[in-house]
C-alpha cells in the first residue's frame, strides 16, 4: 500500500499541490456570497459599487498570484519531479468542463427535476476516485454533495442557478480538494533538510 501511495504521489505530484486550489476556491466562494446578495450591492451608491467591484478584482488577482506562488513553495520544500505526459487526462478534464457548460444550458431549457450539469460533475468526481483506487477519500464525499445538489429540486428545493452552483459548490470543492491533496502530500512526504544542507553533487 505504501508503495502504491509513493507511486500515486509521484505520478500526481504537480496535481496534488493543493495550496494552488485553496485561494481560487475561496475566491469562488466569496463570489457565490456575492451572487446570493449577501453583500447587498444594490443598496450601494454607484461609487461604492465601483469600489466593491475593484476590491473583488483585486482579490481575484491575489488569489491567482497565491495559486501561482504555491508550486514554488512545494519545489522549495520537497524538490521537483518531472512527470509523464498528462495530455490524455487534461483532454478528459477539458471535455468535462465543456460538458458542464453545455449541460447547464440544457438544464435551463429543460424543466427537469434533476440537473444534468451538476450530475456530470458528481459522476466525474466519482469516476476519478474509482480510477485512483480511492486514494483520495474526499472525492466520493464531494461527488455525493454534487449529486445532492443535482437532485435538490426533486427533494423539494429550488434549483441552484448555474452561476451559484459553479461558484459556491465549485469553490467549496476546490477548497476541500486543496486541503485534502495538501494533507496527502505532506503526510506521504517527509520534510528533508533545507536545500543548503543537502550534500554537494560531487559527494554523490
Amino acid at each position: 500500500m505504501e508503495h502504491q501511495k509513493i507511486r500515486f504521489v509521484t505520478a500526481n505530484y504537480a496535481q496534488l499541490q493543493g495550496l494552488r486550489l485553496i485561494p481560487i476556491g475561496l475566491f469562488l466562494m466569496l463570489t457565490a456570497f456575492d451572487v446570493l446578495g449577501v453583500f447587498d450591492r444594490q443598496s450601494l451608491s454607484a461609487a461604492d459599487r465601483a469600489q466593491a467591484l475593484t476590491r473583488m478584482g483585486l482579490l481575484a488577482w491575489l488569489a491567482i498570484g497565491a495559486a501561482l506562488a504555491a508550486p514554488v513553495y512545494y519545489r522549495y520544500r520537497y524538490g521537483a519531479v518531472e512527470g509523464f505526459d498528462r495530455r490524455r487526462r487534461d483532454r478528459w478534464i477539458t471535455a468535462a468542463v465543456f460538458g458542464f457548460f453545455v449541460l447547464s444550458r440544457v438544464d435551463r431549457n429543460l424543466d427537469w427535476p434533476v440537473s444534468l450539469s451538476l450530475m456530470l460533475v458528481s459522476v466525474s468526481l466519482f469516476v476519478t476516485a474509482l480510477n485512483e483506487h480511492w486514494v483520495r477519500p474526499y472525492y466520493p464525499v464531494l461527488a455525493a454533495m454534487w449529486l445532492l445538489a443535482a437532485c435538490w429540486p426533486m427533494l423539494g428545493g429550488s434549483p441552484p442557478g448555474a452561476r451559484l452552483a459553479l461558484c459556491g459548490l465549485g469553490g467549496l470543492t476546490l477548497v476541500v480538494i486543496g486541503i485534502g491533496d495538501h494533507l496527502l502530500l505532506s503526510r506521504t512526504l517527509a520534510t528533508p533538510p533545507s536545500p543548503g544542507d543537502a550534500p554537494h553533487p560531487t559527494t554523490l
Binding site: E2, H3, I6, R7, F8, V9, T10, A11, Y13, R77, Y78, G79, A80, V81, E82, G83, F84, T188, L189, A190, T191, P192, P193, P195, A198, L204
Partner: peptide
Amino acid sequence: AILTALSACRSAQFRYLLAV
C-alpha cells in the same frame, strides 16, 4: 521505494527522493 518513485515519473530531484 526509490525505484518505485522513479518509475512513476520521468525524473525526480534528489530532494524529492529524500522526502519520499
